[in-house]
Structure formats: structure tokens, C-alpha cells
Design a protein around this nucleic acid. Structure first.
Lengths: 199, 199, 199, 199
DNA sequence: GATGAATGAGACTTCATTCAT
DNA sequence: AATGAATGAAGTCTCATTCAT
């Protein structure tokens, strides 16, 4: 049957992605060579090209996986949450956890050529999906009169970028304890900043 | 006279730095070659090595210049400002302007090997100097009972990283108009988040 | 089968070594470029780096081969020889022949950084092996009361260096006829110098 | 007066030569850069080219000085000596001392392109002069019936090359004490080898 | 499908030498 | 005469990618 074939192929793709993720914890994507990936994934260099057209497609796959995971988590822990403030708290925490798991991700995104990032590859779709989820949370908060009113798109972008910015900072320089009060402080500041009135 | 020689040398160093900055608006530092820099700066490749020991020293010089400029601006527009809130607003604006001028800077910092960045080269000194200036602003705000109380260092790091994070996002994806209301919104959110009580 | 792969790889390594040896007959190792070697060995420059980590490893391999050959020859033509004088004659001849085949070898050794030569690479081992063989010959001569008595190590070094010194001289400046009477004269002088009494 | 001018120029040439000699004690001639020499000699790199046409001429000057010194010493300590054996002993000692003073000299000669060495530059003249002096010693020894009879030129070359070969070996690997018994052994062996009969 | 081998293109860096002051 | 500056030419090495088995 073709199905098993397909499943095995997918499995091998994943091993390569995982090897790459491991390596990204150790050095820049630019400085990781196909040899490194081959070594780590226990495939030959040439074999990798049977699963990914080139280095770029590989990194895209890596990020797609992360974004997909983030989306799942947001759906699970934010969309079902009735309190918008708590939903927002949860999103920020998810963002932290994600960057905590893959501290290199903001760095790599930062260097990833933008044109491609926003164009033909699946990344932009996933990225928009994630944004849409966050937008949903904000919208609910605004509708319920809890969050301040302002342009939705801008609001979302602001939250996303500030969260990622701080999480990145946090993950590279401070204790990597994800429960630390520093994070709570950031969350509170943001929540305070975006909620109406006294809170 | 020695002095003129010295001045001329410094001037040529600056041209190379400027050429590099220009190129950084077009592509990653990693993907910029010494040939590119030579071409753009109208020096021969070999000449560049008379002014910078290697590519790394060059990028360090580029960043040192940016940090120095930022420090000067903060001193001018924040330290003299008596109102802490206004001082803080000004700092965030300066950060935006800086990233607006050099949109690549967060990206490049992101890929710059961190060990070195925080160690023996002059960058760490400059970076700490900048942090100290911001800490000063916050401290004043806290002393005057305007800003919320919390660990100074964490407070500073949070502000710095969130601002850079958002400014980076802003500069690469939205209209590059520095007067846009989006920025005002970010600033307000942050200010609201860090000031005590009603405001 | 793995074995054939291995053999083929070894064969290709040898071609590169041979190309290098050829070139060494034409110019200094320092002045031979990887391009030269690539050209001569009919590999691409990059390919060479699959067989030798760098230029230094290549030269080490070249010398290892020579030393190995010398050791084999000494074993064959000296150790089996019962007459110590004849054994010694044979060694000196072997040394001449070797330098006659690879006239550049003393020159290259001369410029080769000594630390490495006497340290972690396989060369020092081979070199000591060769010395041990010569020491063996001398020792036998001394035991049998034919050679003069003196410190073994010094004796060995003297013979080695004087032979190499003269062979080098001979090969670079005189007719390269290996049968020439000049060589016979050197051999006689040395033999006369190291044998006891009348001879 | 022109004379002082000339003398000063000669003096500056000598400083550069001396700087080069110093450096040769530390690294290969090929690896010494004109910058090194400039630094060490306290001239600017460009200035050196006013005293030597190029790097090659400089190294030639270095060797010319050494050969000239050797010739002087041979004249002083060998030609005046009436006993040929003692004269020969003295020559070998001079050779040792010379190489002891400039241990790099055989190495550098070894790598020096031979064509030039034997052609238009002054080195060949000096070299021949040195050879002629040694030939003189041998000739006297033969005339007086002390040394064995054989072709003069070959005899000379053999002595020269074997002495240089061993002295080189000695200077790089053993204790650098010039009085050591090892040297005496080499000298005795050679003397024994070239003198007639019982000795 | 898997992989050992091969490589073109290109990066950084060095250095002897010349030029202009 | 002296020298800071400039550079062409060259060298070593790396890497993503393709090919042949």
C-alpha cells in the first residue's frame, strides 16, 4: 500500500527536521551546514535532498512545524477560555513557552529573507492563521468592553511583536525558568496597558 | 601634522562603515561580502583590511556607532526632560527612529554571536551605557511616584526588548512613516502599563 | 562491499600524493598551490579536501610514504645482511636512492615546522622507526668489534644527518647518476671513519 | 661630503639585515613578511624598498653577510694554521659556530630557488670563494701526504655538505652547547675518514 | 531510495610591491 | 629620503548542490 510508504516518508522528513532543530539550539542557521544536518540525522547529505528541495525549504519546514504547534496550543488554551484577559495571559505564556523550547526561532526568523517569508511558501499562511487567532482573542475582549478600542490589526501586531521581542530577550539572557516573576511582570504590564479603566 | 592624518584616517573608516550600513539595508550581514563592501566604499578589498582587522571588527564598529548615537540622543532628549513620562515617551521614539534609520540592526544583532557581543569588545560597554541611561529614566519615574515599583533591571530589560521588538516589527512590515498612529498606540500602551493608578 | 570502496578511496588518495610528489620536483611545497595539485591530480580543488584535511596533512602523508618506503628498504637490504659494513654501505645507498627519487625531500623537511614534525603526527613515529633500524645496524657492528665504540644515539644521528646532508647536496648539484664514484667516495670516507683500526 | 651619506646608507642597510636575521631565528623566511621586517627594523615598509629592490635581494644580502663572515674566519683560523689536520678541524668548527649563530641558514638556503642562487647574484661568487678556501686546505693536506687522494672538487663538496648537514642537525635537535663531545665525535670521524693510513 | 564522490562558485584574508605626498 | 595608503593577485578553505552507482 502507498499509505505506509507515505507515512514512512513523513517520518523520515520529521527526523531531519528534528535534527535541524537540535542544531539550531547550538548555532545559527546560516552556520549550520548540510553536513551537520546529515551527521545529526543519520542520513547522508545527498539523501536530505530527497526530502527537501534545498536548505531553504528545510528551514521553512522547521518553522511551519513550530507555527502549527503554536496554533494548536492557542486553540486549546485560549479559544476555549471565556475570560478574555485570561485568554490573553495564556497566549503570552504560550509564546514564551514556544520561544523557551526553541530559543533560536526569533533569531532565525529575523534573518530569514523577507520576500520569501511573505510569499509563495506555506509560512505566510500559517503566520496569518496564528495572527487571526490572536485577533480573535482581542476582538472578544473589545466586544466585551474589557480591552481598549483600537485598530485590530495594529493591536495584534503590537502584541505579537512585543511579546516575541521580550520573550526572545528573556530566553537568551535571563534564567530560563519559565515560571519566573519577570515574565509575570511583563504579562501584567501588557494586560494593564491594554485593558480599559481601573483593572 | 599627525592630527590631520588621524582625522583623515578616521574619515575613511567612517566611509567604510557607511558603505556597510547601506548594504545592510539590502541584505544580511552574513551575505554581504567583502567585495560588496569594497565596491560600495570605493576602496579595494585589501584596503578595508587596513581599517578593520576582519569582517567581525567591521560589524562591531557599525554597531558601536549606532549605540553611540542612541546614547547621545537619549542624553539630549531624555535626561534633560523633567517629566519622567515624557522622558520615557522620548526614549521609545528615539528607539523607533534609530531602528527606522537602520532597520537591519535588530536582525544583525540577532545573528551576532552572543558571547562576543557581551564580552571583550566595546559593544558590551556601550550597550550597558545605554541601559544605564534608561534605568536612570525609570528610576526617576519611580522616585517621583509615577511609575510602578518593580525590580529596576528587569523593568529596563522589559522596556528595551519590547520596544526593540515592536520597532523591528513595525519597521519591516508597516508603512515606514515614523509619525504613524500605530507607534503612538504602542507608546501609550507601554506608558499606561508602567504608570501607577489612573493616569 | 565496503572493502572495494575502501581500496578505491585509498587509490585516489595515492594519486593525489603522487601528483604532489611530482610537483615537489618542480617547486617548493610552500609555493605549490592547491590549484596546482588539483590540476595535476585531475581532481577539483574541493575534492582534495575530501582526502586531506588541509595542505599540511597532505605533506605529512607525502612524507609518511617516503619514510615507510625507506624503512621497508632498510629492512630488506640491511637487516638481512650479515656483514655490518656491508649493511651500513647499503643503508647509505638506500638513503641516496631515496633522495635521488625525491630530491626535494630534505628541502621540504627543512622548512616543515619542527614542532609538528616531532610531535602528534605519525611522522615522528616513522622517523623513530627508521632511526631504530639504523641504530640496529650500528649496534651489531659494535658488538662484533667492527665499528668504533661511542654513544649509540649520537652515532646514529651523525650518520643520518651527514648522509642526508651529502645526498641532498649531491642530488641537487651534481650529475644525478646514482652510480657515480663520488658517492662511493663519500661512503668509503664514512665507513673508514667509523670502523676500527686498519680496515 | 658624499662619503658620510654613503656610510649612513650602508648603516641603515645593515639594520634591516639584522632585523631580518633576528626574525629568521623565529620563523621561516617565506613566512616573514615585509611588515615584520619593517616593524623590527623601525623603518616603514616602503622605506625598505629604498635599500633593497625586493624581498629576494634582501635575503641575498643576509646570506652574503654570513658567507663573508665565514670566509674571514676561515682565512684567519685555517689558512694560517700549518697543520692541515688542525686546519680542517678548525674549518668544521667554524662551520658549526656559524650555523650555531644562524641556525636557520641551512633551512633558508634549502628553500632558496636554486637557479638564482647559482647565477647572477653575488652569492655564487662568495660561495665559490668559500669553497676555494676549503679546497686550499685539502690540497695542502694532500700535498703533504696526510689526506687521502681523490678528486678535489668532490672532496670539497663532500666535506662541505656533510658538515653543514650534521651541523644543521645538531643545532636543531641537540643541546646547543658548542663544546659538546658530540661535535668532537663528528669531527674525529671525518678526520679519520679523510686521513691516510693509521692516523 | 540511498549515498559516496565530485565540484563550481565564492568567501575571507594576506602580502609584496607601488604611489603620492 | 621617508612613509602612509592603496591594491592586484593570489592562496586556503567551505559549502550547497548534483551525479553516478
Amino acid at each position: 500500500m502507498r499509505a505506509r510508504h507515505e507515512r514512512e516518508r513523513e517520518f523520515r522528513r520529521e527526523s531531519i527536521i528534528e535534527a535541524t532543530e537540535q542544531l539550531l539550539n547550538e548555532k545559527t542557521f546560516e552556520s549550520i551546514t548540510m553536513d551537520d544536518i546529515a551527521m545529526r540525522s543519520d542520513f547522508s547529505k545527498a539523501s536530505i535532498y530527497q526530502y527537501f528541495k534545498n536548505k531553504e525549504e528545510l528551514i521553512i519546514a522547521v518553522f511551519a512545524r513550530i507555527l502549527r504547534t503554536e496554533c494548536h496550543l492557542i486553540e486549546e488554551r485560549c479559544l476555549l477560555e471565556t475570560d478574555p484577559i485570561q485568554a490573553m495571559r495564556n497566549y503570552i505564556k504560550i509564546q514564551f513557552e514556544s520561544i523557551h523550547r526553541n530559543p533560536w526561532s526569533p533569531k532565525v526568523i529575523a534573518t530569514f529573507p523577507f520576500r520569501d517569508y511573505h510569499a509563495e511558501n506555506c509560512l505566510s499562511d500559517l503566520y496569518n492563521q496564528k495572527k487571526k487567532l490572536i485577533t480573535g482573542i482581542i476582538q472578544r475582549g473589545q466586544t466585551e468592553g474589557i480591552f481598549i478600542i483600537s485598530d485590530l490589526d495594529i493591536f495584534t501586531n503590537m502584541l505579537l511583536s512585543a511579546s516575541v521581542g521580550f520573550a526572545n530577550y528573556f530566553s537568551t539572557r535571563m534564567s530560563s525558568d519559565i515560571q519566573s516573576p519577570e515574565i509575570e511582570m511583563f504579562i501584567s504590564t501588557i494586560i494593564k496597558g491594554i485593558t480599559k479603566g481601573e483593572q
